[in-house]
């Protein structure tokens, strides 16, 4: 009996890396090149602190996603794909929110 012990994670991994590249590119364009990605009409109290909190939470979610990704590649029958996908989704949403808040 043939048992498949590995799982093809090439496509999700490419998606995660593309999301990370998009976020890093957005930060570079906004911070170093001075291009505003959103209008300047948004002024919230403690906006910078809020953006920093979003960034740290996003990094935590991303690291959790990378950990779950490695665990799923190692033993896909123990780690459901939702643990990886939801962590990656939280990383991207929180990171994009932080980029928009910091503009």
């Amino acid at each position: 009996m043939i048992v498949q012990k590995t799982i093809d994670m090439t496509r999700p991994a490419a998606l995660y890396l593309a999301a990370i590249a998009v976020l890093i590119l957005a930060v570079f364009i906004e911070g170093r090149l001075g291009v505003r990605l959103v209008s300047r009409g948004m002024h919230l109290p403690l906006q910078r602190t809020l953006a920093a909190g979003f960034i740290l939470t996003s990094v935590a979610a991303g690291l959790l996603g990378a950990h779950r990704y490695a665990a799923r590649v190692k033993a896909p029958w123990r780690v459901p794909s939702s643990q990886v996908h939801l962590s990656a989704f939280a990383f991207f949403v929180l990171g994009a929110s932080a980029v928009l808040l910091s503009s």
Partner: peptide, 14 residues
């Protein structure tokens, strides 16, 4: 990449 994004984002802020 996640750590690089965090470092770049915090540097952009502060």
């Amino acid at each position: 990449g996640v750590l690089l994004f965090g470092a770049a984002g915090l540097a952009n802020l502060y």
